[in-house]
Amino acid sequence: MSDWAIWLVLAGILLGAELFTGTFYLLMIALGLVAGGVVAWGGVQLEWQLLVAAIVGVIAVLGLRRSRYGRLRQGSGNDDPNLLLDIGQGIEVPLWQAHGSQYIARVPYRGAQWDVELLPGHHALPGPHVIREIRGSRLLVAPR
């Protein structure tokens, strides 16, 4: 088997592993292996093939790390609608009760009674509200 074919087989193995892990980092390393295969196809010595594969792989990983896909999301997932499908759903609040500086209510939602808290900066009026965040068993809402 020729050198370039070995590089491409290794890249294919990493592509298959990337499908199971779901990260883009193995995809970037596979890109480096493909670059090594392209250089090997050109008839360059093994040392240069390894160097090109390493350089392209490192640059691809660093580029991914600096992109928005490689950054970790800071903060909590309490207000992320991709994690909590209740975010953005509507509820009906019949009556607010003042507890210090916050307003609390108890409402039925999804077949159970939930504690609801009004987000700061909104007026405590009964009626339709939208879930903006979930903290434990408490729904934080804003008027619709």
Rank of each mutant, 00 (worst) to 15 (best):
Q74M: 07
I104V: 13
G42Y: 05
L85M: 11
G70P: 07
L139E: 03
L33S: 09
I131P: 00
L139C: 06
V93T: 01
L8F: 03
V61Y: 00
S67E: 08
R71F: 05
F20R: 01
P94M: 10
A40T: 01
Q113W: 09
V44E: 12
G37C: 12
S2K: 12
Q113C: 06
Q45L: 10
R135K: 11
P81T: 01
F24E: 12
V44I: 15
P143L: 08
R68P: 08
G43K: 01
G32P: 06
V130W: 15
V39E: 03
G42K: 07
I6A: 12
P94R: 13
A53E: 02
A5N: 11
L125P: 13
L26W: 02
S101V: 07
L26Q: 00
V58D: 06
V52W: 03
R71A: 13
W48D: 08
V56H: 06
S101A: 10
V58Y: 06
L84E: 13
L27G: 15
L84G: 09
E117H: 13
L119R: 13
I134R: 07
V44A: 15
L64W: 14
E47F: 11
V52D: 02
L33F: 14
V44S: 11
Y25V: 12
T23Y: 15
Q89S: 06
I91L: 05
G90K: 11
L83H: 11
I104D: 09
L26N: 05
M28F: 08
L27M: 15
L51E: 02
W96S: 01
V52K: 02
D86F: 04
I91V: 03
R138S: 11
H129D: 01
L19H: 00
A142L: 05
P128I: 07
Q74D: 10
R132P: 08
L31E: 10
L119V: 12
G12H: 03
Y109G: 01
L83M: 07
A35V: 02
L19E: 00
L15Q: 09
P108K: 12
R66A: 14
R73A: 13
R68V: 09
D3K: 06
L119A: 15
W7M: 07
A124P: 15
L10I: 05
N78A: 10
A60F: 01
G36Q: 14
V39R: 04
S137F: 08
D79F: 09
Y103N: 10
Y103G: 04
G16N: 03
I29Q: 03
M28Y: 02
E92P: 03
P128L: 15
V39Q: 07
N82Y: 08
L95D: 10
I134V: 10
P143C: 04
I29K: 02
R138E: 08
G12I: 00
D79K: 13
R68A: 11
G37N: 14
P94Y: 06
L118A: 07
G32Y: 12
A30Y: 05
L118F: 14
A5T: 15
G42E: 08
P126S: 04
Q45K: 09
W114I: 01
W7K: 07
S76T: 14
A124S: 14
G136K: 09
G43I: 04
V107N: 03
L119P: 05
W114T: 02
G77T: 10
V39I: 06
P128Q: 11
G42V: 04
E117M: 15
E18A: 02
R73I: 12
L139F: 05
L62Y: 10
D115P: 09
P81V: 00
I131V: 02
G75H: 01
G57Q: 06
